[in-house]
Design a protein around this nucleic acid. Sequence first.
DNA 1: CCATCTTTGTGCACGCGTTCACAAAGGCAT
DNA 2: ATGCCTTTGTGAACGCGTGCACAAAGATGG
Lengths: 267, 267
Amino acid sequence: MATGRTHRPATRSRGIPEATVARLPLYLRALTALSERSVPTVSSEELAAAAGVNSAKLRKDFSYLGSYGTRGVGYDVEYLVYQISRELGLTQDWPVVIVGIGNLGAALANYGGFASRGFRVAALIDADPAMKGKPVAGMPVQHTDDLEKIISDNGVHIGVIATPAGAAQQVSERLIAAGVTSILNFAPTVLSVPDGVDVRKVDLSIELQILAFHEQRKAGEEAAAVAGAADDVVTPPPLRADTAAAAAAAAASRKGPDGDVPAVMPA
Amino acid sequence: MATGRTHRPATRSRGIPEATVARLPLYLRALTALSERSVPTVSSEELAAAAGVNSAKLRKDFSYLGSYGTRGVGYDVEYLVYQISRELGLTQDWPVVIVGIGNLGAALANYGGFASRGFRVAALIDADPAMKGKPVAGMPVQHTDDLEKIISDNGVHIGVIATPAGAAQQVSERLIAAGVTSILNFAPTVLSVPDGVDVRKVDLSIELQILAFHEQRKAGEEAAAVAGAADDVVTPPPLRADTAAAAAAAAASRKGPDGDVPAVMPA
DNA sequence: CCATCTTTGTGCACGCGTTCACAAAGGCAT
DNA sequence: ATGCCTTTGTGAACGCGTGCACAAAGATGG
C-alpha cells in the first residue's frame, strides 16, 4: 500500500476504529465481486480469504457495524454491500476536483475506479493557461483563477492535489478556504492544514523506498548466508565522521552495498 | 496516504520497526530539502515539524538506527541523509519494470520521483501488441512475451503492476517466477504471493472512500448540531431486508456505489 | 421437538507503536 | 575549569490493533 493518514489523530469516529474503516473498502470490493457472480451468502472465512485478511479480524470489523450475519450461515452479500456502502457514505455522489493536470492528474481523470465508486469528477483545474479549455478525459481543463467558484458552484468537499510539490501547500489553502474539507494529496510534501480537514497522502516514491529497504535486507541476508560469518553487511562499522565533508568523502569511497553516492536528489 | 503493506506480517527486520521504516523516506525528503538549502544541522524538533511528525517519535525512530545526533546541537544533515539512504538501500540503483502501460503506467513512467531516488525504470511492458515499440517516456514499450527475459537480463527485483485488475495476479506470478521479490501493486486486487515476496498496494479509490467516510461523518455531525436532536442521521433505521432480492432492489435503486461496472482500469 | 453441526460475535491476552518525561551528554560562555 | 543551557536518547506507561478460542445462536435433518 501507499502511505497513510496524516495529522488526524485517529478520531475513532463514532466508535469505528480507523483501522477498520480502512479495511471496509477492501471488503466492499470483494463483496461487489461476489454480488456480480450472484453469490447469495458468504462466510467470514471465505470473504476474509477474498479480501486477504484474517477471518477473526473481519468478524470483529463487522461487529462494529452491527450484527449483520446469521450464525451457521454467514453474511447476506447484497445486504452487506448496502450496509458497508452506507457506512462509508457511498450511497451519495461525491463531486471531486482534481488540481494539477500533468501526467498523473490526467491519469487520475481517466481512472474509471472513481466514477464506479460514487465519486464524480466535477472539474479539472490547472495553473497553466495553455491547458485552459483543453479536453482531458472528455472534460475541459479550467484555470486555477476560477478554483473558488468551481468549488462552491459544485458543492465540492473533496479535492485531489496532483500538482508539483512546490504548489501543493498553496493549492490546499485555496481549496480549504473555498470549502474543501478532505484532501487526497499526491504531491510529495507535507501539507499543513487546520483542524477539521482530513488529508490522506499517496507517495509513489515512498512506497518504492520501503520495498527497497526490505529488498536490501533480503539481499543482505542472502549474502550473509553465502559468505558465512559476514556479520556487518547490514550494519557496517559506525565510521562516524565529524564533518559533513568527511562523511560525504567516506560515503563516496565505499563501493559495496552501502557505498555509492548518497542520494542527493529529492523525490 | 494510500493503502498499506500486505501479507508480510511485520517482520521487524533487524530490529527496525515497520512503522519506523515507513517514516524514514519522509525524514529523508525533509533532510534533502534542508541539504539543498545548505543547512548544516537540524534539531529533532525542527525536523519533526518539517516531516509532520512528533519529535519524540522522530528521536525514537533515529535511535533504532544508532546514535547519530549530538546533544545540545542536533543532527548533522548531510550525515543523516547518508545514513538513512544507506539504511533504505538507496545508495544503490534499483532497476524496476512497469507492467501495464495504460494511463497510469504511462504517468508512472514519466514520474520524475523514481529516477531521483535511486530507482531506474529498466523497461515498460504491456500485453497489447499495438503498444509494442511505441515510445513512452522516451523508452520503447516491450511486449509481455519477453517479460522473463527482460527481468533476468536487467537483474530486476522490483516490479510495478499497473494493469487492469483481471491481469494482475497472473502478471505477479510471472514476475515472481522470473525473479522479482518486491511488487508495488496499483491494480485493485488482492495479490496472493509466496512467502519471501513483499507486496505493497496503492489503491486510489480506497483512499477516496476513506475520505468519504470522514466527510460523511462531518456532514452528519453538522446536520445533527443544526437540527438539534437529530440522532440517527448517521445510523438510519435498520431497514434490515429479509431477502437478498429486497436488499438488491434497494441497492439498485440508487445510482452510485454498488451497481455500476467494476473498476476495470487500475489506479 | 430434539440433537447436531456450522458459523457468528466477542471476551481476553498479547504485542506493537506512541507519547511523556527525564536523566545523561555535550557545547558554550564566563 | 566550572556551571549553565540545550537537546538527545530512552525507560516506562498507555492505548490501539490483532488473533485466539469459545460460548451463544441459529439452521438443518431426523
